[in-house]
Design a protein around this nucleic acid. Sequence first.
DNA 1: CTGAAAGCGCTAACAA
DNA 2: TTGTTAGCGCTTTCAG
Lengths: 346, 346
Amino acid sequence: MTTRPIPPRRPLTLRDVSEASGVSEMTVSRVLRNRGDVSAATREKVLTAAKTLGYVPNKIAGALASQRVNLVAVIIPSLSNMVFPEVMGAISNTLEGTGLQPVVGVTNYTPEREEQVLYEMLSWRPSGVIIAGLEQTDAAKAMMRNSGIPVVQIMDVDGTPVDNSVGISHRRAGRMMAQQILKAGYQNIGFMGTKMPLDHRARKRFEGFTEALAKGGVQVADQEFYSGGSALAKGREMTATMLERNPDLDFLYYSNDMIGAGGLLYLLEQGIDIPGQIGLAGFNGVELLDGLPRQLATMDACRYDIGVKAAEIIQARVENTEASPVSLELTPKIAFGDTLKRKLGG
Amino acid sequence: MTTRPIPPRRPLTLRDVSEASGVSEMTVSRVLRNRGDVSAATREKVLTAAKTLGYVPNKIAGALASQRVNLVAVIIPSLSNMVFPEVMGAISNTLEGTGLQPVVGVTNYTPEREEQVLYEMLSWRPSGVIIAGLEQTDAAKAMMRNSGIPVVQIMDVDGTPVDNSVGISHRRAGRMMAQQILKAGYQNIGFMGTKMPLDHRARKRFEGFTEALAKGGVQVADQEFYSGGSALAKGREMTATMLERNPDLDFLYYSNDMIGAGGLLYLLEQGIDIPGQIGLAGFNGVELLDGLPRQLATMDACRYDIGVKAAEIIQARVENTEASPVSLELTPKIAFGDTLKRKLGG
DNA sequence: CTGAAAGCGCTAACAA
DNA sequence: TTGTTAGCGCTTTCAG
């Protein structure tokens, strides 16, 4: 029969392990952290005691005493847009083995919530902050500046970072896509996207897009916005609506791949010739696209690389506080897929 | 011209606010936490000082002193399966306004990682733990039992919980689907799923499924497993492979909706009559399905309700430590969609 | 309504 | 290699 230790009302402390093992608290602490030289015998005693007692160190006390917290705050707008979990994954992988640990905070695309979340996270005194976008409130920016810890603003470079930044230029991304569309000969272009004034990156892409079209003497012929619901379904609906209203459109630019996929499925069902009669493009390069009947033209937002770089910057800055700020612009690549005619020189 | 405070090398403390406002640290603390009675005048002074200095409280010190941490550890296998972010969302929403805050940990479906993550999170002395599944290592279960905090194991009820549990019976879910398939008259059934021995819920669904088929005198005629890559694409590929190998299958059961959707798209392209010639079903009720050409039959896993209930249990237990453990089984509902023939009495 | 003292559980720094 | 001492920045408790 095994003795099952009764769950202690009071969580165990170093002192308990110290008493159980007959070793000083300090030495117990050293063993548990693999710090300093401890004889094999003592180490053994301590480890056994800690394990049988079921001791779990109190990081709160540890952090307070050592003035060190191995956490990196990662602040993103949402978890339901797969883009952000992907960046998180990249950050996690990169941080693995560095002793740093990411902790997520979600803002739901609102500046107030973002400020709160930031405040909340900073109050835990993390080692660094990785935050999506360059558009925080003044108060939030001040908090980041005053925190004394490295900050990386990610996913966007169109603006001035507080400290470090890694991302792509969404304005440029919009321009690039517009140029390819014009080069392919499309002239009658519709746009569909989310009804989210606070999604600055989507806004910048659209701005770059219209700007480059204008340079080619073309204006967006129609546009439509949605919010909530299944993006795939919305893509369908909006596409149907728009084509009904505007049957001679020859290109549809979607602000994300999910609605683009919805549009693609719809048009295929209608027997429309893609990309001959109508061309299509989305944005993001989501994995899902691989399984569609046709490859949707899209643009990779370098999400994985952004996560990796951001984590590397934090790590470097934690190790060397004096290093100077880094601003890194990555370059998105167009994937033509099967829905955008490719012209030579593209 | 505005004076911009130079970022302090040393983070600000209560003492700084105390000195700047000429009020004792204790009273400053009271103001900042809205605790106890403080005169409006003092309150004002403190708030102003704190704001102009840009003071951010140190929760580490606060937590150590008060022995209270308002964090709830949420431990899930992955962020890339949308099921988990959804549960997280439900937990977040429910916890909002209770003073509790969720913190995510991701295990990548491995027990070792799960144990580490749990240990790491418990070392921050959270107020509660919400963890996916009932199958943790013995060490992990011991940690949870000994932690002295409320624990809710979610998403599965086929087994014995450490403390509280909320979820569905995946075994039953598998059985239910099998029964409907048999009732609809299908006899030649193929199964496709992930190659993940550690996804216990998928395993249990499969077990329930085969068991109920067996009761109807039917065996799974063929099966295929995948890992990695785009689930939609894998669903296509596996479906093609399986039908080539086994052309007279009349039903395909997919362990998740994403591969089911891939299969559906493939079969539609092949011009196969669904659900006449071949019936299909997936699992989870993902939002994506709304945008497909046909509604895939599926089963809702009650993810949102599970998150809500789990959060409520934690909250109740934090307020009343003496409450007895709760075990809650929710009942998933079948959505027949367009890919599973519906018979009367179903 | 306000303040002073004590200590949360751990680790840095030093001493033996 | 091990132990002792003195806090880390806050809150609890108790006294004014």
